[in-house]
Design a protein around this nucleic acid. Sequence first.
DNA 1: GTCTATATCATGATAGAC
DNA 2: GTCTATCATGATATAGAC
Lengths: 204, 204
Amino acid sequence: MQPAVRPDTRALVLDAALDLFSEAGYFNTSVHDLVRAAGVSIGSIYHHFGDKEGVARALYAHLSERMAWMVADVGARHDTCRAQSRELIARLFAMTEAEPRTMAFLFYARHREFLPDEPPVCSSRPFVMLRALVERGMGRGEVRRMDVLVASSSLFGGAFRMITSRLDGIVPEPLPTYLDEIWACAWRAVAAGASQPSRRRKSA
Amino acid sequence: MQPAVRPDTRALVLDAALDLFSEAGYFNTSVHDLVRAAGVSIGSIYHHFGDKEGVARALYAHLSERMAWMVADVGARHDTCRAQSRELIARLFAMTEAEPRTMAFLFYARHREFLPDEPPVCSSRPFVMLRALVERGMGRGEVRRMDVLVASSSLFGGAFRMITSRLDGIVPEPLPTYLDEIWACAWRAVAAGASQPSRRRKSA
DNA sequence: GTCTATATCATGATAGAC
DNA sequence: GTCTATCATGATATAGAC
């Protein structure tokens, strides 16, 4: 849509905001900090976003949509919950290394504190899609019958903790190093065991 | 130490701070808000805590120590990792219902943003104790051999997610309702299977 | 749409009496 | 140790030229 050789103001501001919000936090970042980091005037920022909260809102919406798109893409590329969850964790791990600021802002920030109108992260679209993914797996007999919240927490909780720990600097190696181990644990936790075939057995 | 019939100023302020910080967040709470909520003068607050950050620091230290004490107590009461982890999750779940503010402040707040000198939550004492607990279980052959970070993330990650989801209002029932299911998942994830006896088998 | 200069005001913090 | 009254800063947001 745009010439793209000279990035438009919105993009400049959003990129600076991601930087500063994920590094120092929303409240430790003043609009003047954004001005300096983005290289645009304060007037432009207020023109495009209305107020400081508007910047955070736009950023959150953008990243949230990207994440939802990724979850949908993974869902479309694989048909078992097993494959979907593994690929999802793999992509999240890779993304944490490639774009730590994005992951920090999405997984780590407390949006409720500066976006009072947004629903909590866990009810946001990507997270709802995660639960739906698990629910389908349960319907198919891949995932052990249990409360859906428990199942999705158990399937993704370990990986999410690794992500936040990595962002915290606790985890020494790049996350993909741990993918096999963490996913093996996650899947063991929820996979329908032989004792609970639910629908039909593979070999009767 | 104190008569305790009339709670001292420090306790009054810390209680108000826990309320406001966990509800609205540190940055959305002004010192004047603390004054109103605690029913003490602003002079007293600065006399006792030095500055606003000092209030947060004192609160964090207090709750952190309580939590560390709890983890130590659980460690002393049980000798297997299996029993310890279950009891730990049970107590955390109960605590989330009984003292949601405490859990919100400890598990949910981003301390780095307002306590720049404190190490990240995951390196704080209680969390280090958790990893140690898992490590001992691994040494004993109870827990499957793997990276310790992966193991502790897998063992507690699901429960932690349930806690934050509950604080977010996503989880409808009191957490103890889900204890059996969540713990079964968590333990399946990391328990040393029959295929990996490590030290000795129960029945040879 | 972008910019500079400015208004407004809430907040963290202090002074000093009691 | 506690209080009230006050200060000084820096933040969000606006006005209005270009």
